[in-house]
Amino acid sequence: MVRTYALLAWTWTRAAAAYRGSFALMVLLGFVVAAVDVAVILVVFANTTALAGFTRDEVLLLYGAASLSFTLCDMLVGNLDRVSAHIKAGTFDTFLIRPIGAWVQLAADRFNPTRIGRIVQAVLVLGHAVTALGVGWDRGWMIAVMVATGMVIFGSLWTLAGALQFLLTDAPEVVNTFTYGGQQLTQYPLAVYSRELVLGVTYVLPLAFVNWQPGLYVLGRDDPFGTPEALRFLGPVAALVLALAAMAAWRQGVRHYRSTGS
């Protein structure tokens, strides 16, 4: 599966690289668009030294980690949310006549290497935050775990969104709220949100494990909502559970696929 993905992605990259000027422009623009969110954080912290008890660099650490997971996923599997577009255009059939899974093909379809601009931006923010906060290896190792966990969680959300589009073909924007809403939610420390919302994204839809729970460990802080210490380390478990649920949903979705017309 990884080989197939790499092969498809490489083929698309080669096709995109043929237009060099446009390629560079799109990378740059991705960088600029992503910078808007950071600019907003900086504007907020131009007015205050702490937001819900978190400093600017702490927020940037949480933002950088979540952003890195999200942008990597966006590049790698972001096309999964085009299920509804493919169904409407009648092009989904094409994926099903090939001897490999539809998921891999769809995820790699129109693989867009120009999204690297946004990834670079996330890496820079994360790098800045780690340096500014002086995070050491003793707790810094968790950052790698957290980015990987975040990727699995966002990847699962994309898969779920894609799977739901088999049912809600006419309303892709409704299901895409999950992925982009998840990104928006994880940009700030969950401490700013209400207790019910945070408990929801901890125990129901495990977005809290993208950066919040492991991030608290990296920052060496207690959870203002008083969740048990053990949750800081349970991210991978939560991600795995969500991934299994997403896989099951995707299978069901493909089984219920109704090819249109002739």
């Binding site: 059939d93 099903l96 006549i97 696929y257 109704r258 090819s259 017309g261 002739s262």
Partner: peptide, 11 residues
């Protein structure tokens, strides 16, 4: 077409 698609595993 429905028949064809069932034969290919699409439906």
């Amino acid at each position: 077409s429905t028949t064809i698609k069932m034969l290919c595993g699409i439906l």
